[in-house]
Amino acid sequence: MKSNSLPAGFDDLAPFVAAWALGHEKARHLRLLETSIAELRRFYDAMLPRYPAIVAYLNRFPLDALPEDAQRLFDLARTFVETAHPIDLNWRTTNIEDSFPADRLLYMPPSGSDQP
């Protein structure tokens, strides 16, 4: 079974792991688009004050060798920075109106990785 544990000291963020600790750009973007502003704001408000401590903790490890629980924390932080703009900019919706449909975007894999 997949563990949802975070490094010691970050337990307060555990309730957000299942929905928001996402490892792929596409998953993070689609999560944003299907979320209500109210739900996004709960995540945003929880992460905002914790961000400096999160980065300070993660920076202790080499980027390509994060322990499993640190990787989860990194994925959580990554979803946070990639989904913050609707709150930062006071949008009424998480999906900007009059924009190219996300389901027609192909998210290409990172350099040198195998198939998407």
Binding site: R28, N59, F61, A77, S99
Partner: peptide, 27 residues
Amino acid sequence: KAKNAGEKLSQGYFAARGREVFREDIN
């Protein structure tokens, strides 16, 4: 190239906004 997690997260912030701008351009 990002030296650490903090810089990798900066990249994510930038790219996500770039994606929304790109979606408007191509729309």
